[in-house]
Amino acid sequence: MKEGNTTVLFGLYDDEVDLLNAVKKANEAHLDILDVYSPFPVHGLDPLLGLEESRLHIAGFVYGSLGTMTAFGVMTWVFTRDWPIIFGGKPYWSVPAFIPITFELTVLFAAIGMVVTFYTICGLGPGVKAEVLDDRITDDKFCIAYDVSNMASDKISELKSFFSGTGASSVSTKVI
């Protein structure tokens, strides 16, 4: 989505139940929703919008495995190849003693990797300017937005009647 040239028609709802019903109706009428915004995660919304389950946890597993291998690999290399030292008569490759650090780095890599991935794929980060449709969306309003940039006026009035028919408390247009 390029910035500054998308005209958005959006309606605000007062309750998540109204929002869910409206999304159902939009699906029945084959209206192509651009996005839905809410002040908190609304459960039951993802299947209605056809959103697939997030694969973030898979990324987390990959990062975690990377951490496991890094920690175990580095300790093995240091204590068997680079600078072998005998501690307390134990073997150079004293695996049980490597477990705590291996565990900690697994968690560390998974956490940092997932958080960075999350902000990257969401396009969020320090200095990112939020395209706020309405200030009340982070407070108590639930919003359905349609892209009406290249839409014929009769389609737009169809969307407006959709909003009034589903109980939207306000309908407005904004260019984002």
Binding site: D35, V36, Y37, S38, P39, V42, L45, D46, L49, L51, Y119, C122, G123, L124, G125, P126, V128, K129, A130, E131, V132, L133, I137, T138
Partner: peptide, 8 residues
């Protein structure tokens, strides 16, 4: 961080 509350 530019949060808007999108469903995704």
């Amino acid at each position: 961080f530019g949060w808007t509350g999108k469903a995704k």
